[in-house]
Amino acid sequence: MVDKIKVDNLSCYYNRKCVLESLNINVIQNEILSIIGPSNSGKTTFLRALNRMNDLDLTYSRRGEVYLDGGSIFDISMEDLRRRIGMLFAMPTPLPMTIYENIVYAPKRLGLISKKSEQDALVERALKDASLWDEVKDRLKSSAMKMSGGQQQRLCIARILAINPEVILFDEPCSGLDPISTVKVEESMIGLKQKYTIVLVTNNVKQASRVSDRTVFFFMGKIVEIGTTDKLFVSPKEKQTEDYITGRFG
């Protein structure tokens, strides 16, 4: 049980208003950690703090530390950090180019690959890992904007896999998808656990119980409860947690 990410007393502010207060969390290597909680409880802010996407917002400020493999994430460049910690957004965000180009875009920019044969191999591997290969292998040169929402979301997963990160952050990845696409995205997520560490923010309590090893319950910018998924869902320690997962509020 190695700690991949360690969050030490992290507080986040927008316009000096505190949205996350003194968080202490560790993410274990090769686990899926789910974060659940009602909206506006700071889940997404927390996720975006981990790969410093918040830092581009000028009204954002933070206190506390986040360590990746023991080193502070604020000591390495944002580019290197995001290469190691990939992120999938709530809405599918394919880039306006072909499926093929979407996948090789970042590796090319980062100088990870150059030869055409390497690119082809990379595209195939990434799409297979995201369980999208069979559906799109004949139309790699068509625009990614023309795919269905579920396919777009899996393409975005493939795109992240292509840069070979260590951690992947999922920000409500199925909120815009139909049930069948959701199942497919969840399947690929579970498959990814072997190689990657995953943090999943979700509004869907059932999804957390289906895929994750451990679950955290956020409320009003604070951690209410953290534990293995089985325990948290079967016998929550806190009353609030129980109320939330049984659907009494949120």
Binding site: M78, L81, G86, L95, Y105
Partner: peptide, 9 residues
């Protein structure tokens, strides 16, 4: 955002 999140400068 999509591009930044992939580590592209």
């Amino acid at each position: 955002e999509a591009s930044w999140s992939l580590g592209v400068s």
